[in-house]
Design a protein around this nucleic acid. Sequence first.
DNA 1: AATGAAACAGTAAGGAG
DNA 2: CTCCTTACTGTTTCATT
Lengths: 153, 153
Amino acid sequence: MAVRLDDMDRKILAELQEDAGQSLDEIARKVGSSKTPVWNRIRKMREAGVIGRQTFILDAEALGLDACFFVLIRTSEHEAEWQQKFLAALRARPEVQEAHRLAGEIDYILKVRVPNARAYDSFYQALISEVRIFNVTALLSMEEIKSTTLLPL
Amino acid sequence: MAVRLDDMDRKILAELQEDAGQSLDEIARKVGSSKTPVWNRIRKMREAGVIGRQTFILDAEALGLDACFFVLIRTSEHEAEWQQKFLAALRARPEVQEAHRLAGEIDYILKVRVPNARAYDSFYQALISEVRIFNVTALLSMEEIKSTTLLPL
DNA sequence: AATGAAACAGTAAGGAG
DNA sequence: CTCCTTACTGTTTCATT
């Protein structure tokens, strides 16, 4: 999955991350090239899967999603069938922003965004009724210090 | 910061999140309206701060960022000056994708993306040399089960 | 809601290294 | 032969009527 990228590619990616709304001409000017080559590089990186979806970042609080939890999960079950069911449940729930399988004592971590603590409890109850879980710790975010989708290039 | 949004606004936001590249005409057709009203709603939501930056989501692994850590931090220091320094350090480091101040025993959680474990160690060493930290637990992600910027509407 | 000017994306043809 | 520049066309944005 590794792709060879040169300096120009990285500059273009930086611009695309920074502001996906700007025109090709603008990007070309900033990276010191012109439209067509920039467009061709973008197309290639898109095909290679380096560049994914184009989206607007919305303000969670303005949308009434005031509560953010990080959920640490331990389970006693490690069978394939259980895992399949658990993964499907996570993918199906839109309040789950992130889910990772971990190395070490804690098996999974989730990031969950909900309107309030009550909504988190509903989510939690629904989840443990769907799949057996050994131990859950919920960490409540008091303040989002930083949140970025910009990857370091 | 709460804004009143009707069904039409939410449908438009859903489309903008789903694919920020599509044209106004396309969005208008999908939400069952026409170009001008959709455009006006988008402008208002932009001004209200509901709609933020427009970006491309890049593939971290294709860019050689193979390691993702969740870092749980406890500190003994809770003075304003220390906190300022800590926050500034986190904001300045591009490998820190997320940082939250938490309620409870653990004070902070970070999400950190780096090329490999060595790079994480460099980050860690640099961080603890900048600010005093009582206790750190790093959780290594083995598998990204889910990762989305799409907020539930 | 329709119109229109300005800007833009995408493509094609030709030129430089 | 590859990558860049320039030129052109249909589409889109955004403001005005």
